[in-house]
Design a protein around this nucleic acid. Sequence first.
RNA 1: CGGGGCGUAGCGCAGCCUGGCUAGCGUACCUGCUUUGGGAGCAGGGGGUCGGAGGUUCGAAUCCUCUCGCCCCGACCA
Length: 571
Amino acid sequence: MYFSKLLIPTLKESPADAEVASHKLMVRAGMIRQLAAGIYSILPLGLRVLKKVEAIIREEMNQVGGQEVFLPSIQPAELWQESKRWDFYGKELLRFKDRHNREFCYGPTHEEVITDIIRKDVKSYRQLPVILYQIQTKFRDEVRPRFGIMRGREFMMKDAYSFHTDEADTQKTYAEMAQAYANVFTRCGLEFKQVQADSGTIGGSFSHEFAVLADSGEDEIAFCNSCNYASNIEMAESKPKAGYERFPDPPQAELKEIHTPGKKSVEEVAEFLKLPRDQIVKTILLENENGLVAGLVRGDHEINPIKMKNLIGCEWLLPAAEKTINEKLGVPCGYIGPVNLDIPIYADQEVTTLGSFVTGANKADTHFTGVQVERDLKINKSGDLRLILADDPCPRCDEGKYQVKRGIEVGHIFILGTKYSEAMKAVYLDNNGKESPMIMGCYGIGVGRTAAASVEQNHDEKGIVWPRNLAPFEVIIIPVNFKNDDLKNTCESLYTQLKKEGVEVILDDRQDRLGGKLKDADLIGFPLQIIVGPKNLEEGKVEIKIRKTQESQLHPYPQIVNDIPNILKDL
RNA sequence: CGGGGCGUAGCGCAGCCUGGCUAGCGUACCUGCUUUGGGAGCAGGGGGUCGGAGGUUCGAAUCCUCUCGCCCCGACCA
């Protein structure tokens, strides 16, 4: 391809509204343009990158037996009402009506559509398992899209769905998918981790995320510095520290009311009573479909609402509004405590191991000391309820400690169980003629997000550094002066020969001066630059420059054609 | 949804507070000449209903009201 024939509108300056590197650079490199909040046009160079990601995904999906389909992006409300998600999905689901006043939505995901297909056309255990996938535009009306195509409202996604007769077969496909995902992200040149995750509104029992490590990531990833345990911080399991010193009061500690005027926060109470924070227990109030609930964690810990929601087994769980608390309990925030508190109480496991502790007394300006779990509290359920902290002990090995880093979720795999197949009656007959719901798995990759994540991990002050497998072109030929006939002919001949060798090459045929062309090449991030100038050419040589290292060296000219494939191998 | 910020040429910005010449600068773009190995120089040129509507005024990019859009922080979502 000739550079001048492609629409590659590079910019010298970053757009004012871009925050993160991938957003700035993809706009500057002429790959994407914004149309509306969270909605982007993909320009020729950007599309070449996305197509590279897609091609890798297709190969890996086909490898594990996936069959590609293409489902409608517009979906009728009836399907979503059947799965109950019409009500539960919320405002993120973009809904609208057609001219006949029928309700539709723009698909944010395709479990309903795929389940509808399978239930109609798959009836026998002989037809299972089936794995279908598609690469297609999704729309999720996010409250706050940001970071370019990293988190758009409209975005390209690969979604795959599998249907099985039994749990073991589902697990097998799940494991193969996990491997396929690892292959995809490895081939995309990404440093990533497979982490344990919550399944959110998709539902289901079991799930992992693939997180690309990057400071601009919106997720927090917790992983062991010794073994291979890794989890989204939302799900990261806590393990009580061995040999932890319990509150040193004797077991017969007395429940005492003390006056603590104006001391609301754990810090204030700890300082006032001259106690460490871990001898105070926080009572956090949240609200679910059944009303207020209380969560107890040690003063030096924070509650993890996701873990708490899973422990309770409720539909939803949100922090309670201060107004609700005051109305229902008649106690100002800061003095709430679990003693004689008449709502369901859930305690973190590390609270139940404390000998005695301090809590609010459900009375303004008052706390209890000497509170004991067994004697003073009615706890509905206790378990792991807290957010882990860096340096906490690893839950899977003895010597490891948690490290916490930021990550970008580029892929997510779930075992759905029978949530959709039961709601939508996707059943099969087994070899006894008995009807059962199919067991499902689903598997997603954000295509644009994967490309953006690659830029986050691979860029420098000059621009993008594409790994070879994602680069829009592998090689750019840059003539120092394209008006010079010798150079022009050499470049064109080199271009033709490389193309014949199967190298993806672009020739910068623009009349611009050298500087501008080199800046653009670095900005866009072609892995290899071949610079053809008159002086070197007289000596039968051309300059080759590696984008990543900025190292350049002279190479004999006709010979270079044969050497390029080898040089590219290492990029 | 709560808080904050910004809308002036493709992109980046000044001008607004304190209303007043033909709305400016950089860059990009077009023409010509020169230049040509790391974002050239000179000369000439095109491109704006100053986000929109209404109001105040002799006069509005500038003041007032409403409205739309975009961005950031948080909450939310995955």
